[in-house]
Design a protein around this nucleic acid. Structure first.
Length: 626
DNA sequence: GTAGGGTTAG
């Protein structure tokens, strides 16, 4: 036997290379990455293919994401009447799934005479990963009906597709019943499900109950807070976990940067940036994108652009482009928005998506270019950009036209929306009706808005203000009664300013800041200078029916005026003052800030809910249009 | 052979 092998080997060595290769077994060819030769051998072997040959071939195909080769192997099985085991069929399924042939994968699953937990789970996870939630849930339901026992892999996958709270809770019940609730993969998916349903307390509880934590579960809870806008809480949790020894990865940093952008904490953002560079984390587009967004939301646009320009072209995703476009849009730099959008289209490397068009349209809106916005919208309908307008795009146009005083056109757009307009859309139209005193449309819109959002005090106040301007006092009174009946809430306005590593918050008519007395005294003092320089309190910004004196007191109590005054006290001559506000700035505060910048020779940078206002020498970058 | 957290908009 030994001699024979030696002889064989000698004879093979004398053959040309190609003949030698065909005689190697398929598993060996595959492990050397010689897939094409292995396939050739498959045809030669015909009916003599065995389990290990198929297994090796499919394994190599998965690694190479080789769809055509996979199809050849599959066809060969059918042609030679080979009956693959559940294991091999599952491999086929996974391969089709990874090549984005979900229908083919599903067909393989359907045709399996016997399915096991891995085959079910592979299908569910692929549907989940590609965003096909309802398909994932359907397969999961089918699995349960077929008495397939889900495991921790299954639950971690299926929870990603549970966007509705009731479905998520049902699955949670099942997880507890089968004792998978302390599994760390299942736990992070579970807490994420609760967070996405807006249930932060439940998410927190899942996290607290986990017997072991890893970087993913820690990141998930930080992200949960950040995504719900609870930025300070997100940072607190991050800090605590850091002190407990968590080692953040690039996803953690991306989430932390989101929270920092929300609070406009530029210095902290820079620290994270330095940290990332020092740790020499590999280049991840996600992280670069968060950095671009952080710098632009903190008002440092040129830095954001530098990061964008330094990204290798092949690494830039639509998110990179969008983050940059949104940055320009929020700064009212419509020329830059349109230029970058043109560059994106010329490059053709990354396709514009729905967020891209939203950023471009809102750029036109902020930059007072309604006709350009409208023609881009028409282009979307004509199919010029490969993105069809959805509700959000219609909403953006409604906002743009309303702001420009083209109320009737805005109203026509509301009627043309493909689905019911959201409260946000109607709210912006109602606001526009008030500014441009359009009573008929305003009444209709306001009534509908109150039906949808009866708890929002702002809606009643604006509509009643509109009635008042038309002298319809009876309607004003009715509305007031209605408002008192429905327990109403309004998001309280607050502004903040950073000074020496501390965030100073001010609320309307602040009673919490330790230096409020000092701030109020200073405000009274500067008011004299301000009035001399032409500041006239704009009483129309007070939406309550009170006397003139009280109106002025209410105006002075607005949080951004308090924050500006604090900035003046706390910083030296000529230093820029950066203030941030959670709501939109009102006309009176905007006017105040402009005159403030002129009188005290300070550059004021004010970021409100929607955009930036860079004010120098009494002139604002928004052109008094926001 | 099957798994979780992710950046942009509103």
């Amino acid at each position: 036997m030994f001699n024979l092998m030696k002889l064989l080997h000698r004879s093979l060595s004398s053959l040309p290379n190609s003949s030698l290769q065909t005689l190697l077994p398929i598993p060996q060819l595959c492990s050397n990455g010689r897939l094409q030769e292995a396939l050739l051998e498959m045809s030669v072997l015909g009916h003599n293919m065995g389990f290990h040959d198929y297994d090796a071939l499919l394994n190599t195909c998965v690694n190479k994401r080789a769809l055509r080769e996979d199809q050849r192997v599959h066809a060969h099985m059918i042609k030679t009447l080979y009956f693959p085991s559940t294991y091999l069929r599952t491999r086929l399924l996974i391969l089709y799934g990874k090549c984005d042939r979900l229908q083919d994968a599903h067909k393989v699953l359907d045709e399996m005479p016997e399915k096991n937990v891995v085959s079910w789970t592979a299908m569910i996870s692929r549907y989940s990963q590609t965003g096909h939630s309802s398909e994932a849930l359907t397969v999961f339901a089918e699995m349960m009906r077929a008495d397939g026992k889900p495991n921790h892999f299954t639950f971690a996958s299926v929870l990603t597709s549970c966007s509705g709270l009731s479905v998520g809770k049902q699955v949670h019940g099942l997880i507890i019943k089968l004792s998978y609730d302390s599994h760390v993969y299942v736990g992070s998916s579970l807490l994420d499900m609760y967070a996405k349903a807006g249930r932060i307390e439940e998410a927190r509880e899942v996290f607290e109950c986990l017997p072991e934590r890893d970087v993913v579960s820690c990141t998930a809870i930080i992200t949960a807070y950040a995504q719900l806008g609870l930025d300070e809480e997100a940072l607190q949790v991050f800090q605590k976990l850091l002190s407990q020894g968590m080692s953040p990865n690039y996803v953690t940093y991306a989430s932390v940067l989101t929270a920092l952008s929300g609070l406009a904490l530029l210095d902290h953002g820079k620290q994270v940036h330095c940290h990332v560079l020092r740790r020499e984390l590999p280049f991840y587009a996600v992280l670069q994108n968060s950095l671009i967004d952080m710098y632009s939301k903190c008002g440092n646009l040129s830095y954001a652009r530098r990061l964008f320009d330094n990204m290798p072209e092949t690494e830039r995703t639509s998110v990179s482009w969008n983050a940059m476009l949104v940055g320009y849009s929020k700064h009212g730099l419509v020329k830059e928005v349109l230029e970058l959008f043109r560059l994106m289209r010329d490059e053709k490397r990354v396709k514009p998506d729905s967020v891209t068009l939203l950023a471009v349209l809102s750029g036109c809106s902020h930059g007072r270019m309604e006709d350009t916005g409208l023609s881009i919208f028409d282009g979307m309908i004509a199919g010029d950009y490969g993105v069809k307008p959805d509700t959000e795009h219609y909403g953006c146009i409604v906002d743009m036209l309303g702001r420009a005083g083209r109320i009737k056109e805005a109203f026509e757009f509301v009627k043309r929306m493909p689905s019911e307009p959201t409260a946000g859309v109607l709210g912006s139209l109602l606001g526009a009706c008030r500014v441009h005193v359009s009573v008929d449309i305003g009444e209709y819109v306001g009534r509908r808005l109150i039906e949808i959002e009866p708890e929002n005090a702002g809606n009643y106040v604006i509509l009643s203000n509109l009635y008042a301007s038309a002298g319809r006092w009876e309607d004003v009174n009715n509305l007031r009664a209605m408002m008192l009946r429905n327990a109403v809430t309004k998001e309280p306005g607050r502004s903040w300013i950073q000074h020496e590593q501390t965030l100073h918050y001010f609320h309307a008519n602040d009673r919490t800041h330790p230096r409020r007395e000092e701030v109020l005294a200073k405000l009274k003092e500067i008011l004299i200078k301000m009035k001399q320089a032409g500041y006239v309190p704009d009483h129309s910004c007070v939406l309550y029916d009170v006397d003139e004196e009280q109106k002025e007191r209410m105006l002075l109590g607005h949080s951004e005026k308090l924050a500006l005054t604090f900035g003046l006290i706390a910083t030296g001559d000529g230093i820029s003052i950066r203030v941030f506000k959670n709501l939109r700035i009102c006309v009176d505060c905007h006017n105040f800030a402009k005159i403030f910048s002129k009188v005290f020779e300070r550059k004021v940078s004010l970021r409100d809910k929607n955009r930036f206002h860079q004010i120098v020498g009494g002139v604002c970058s928004c052109g008094d249009y926001w």
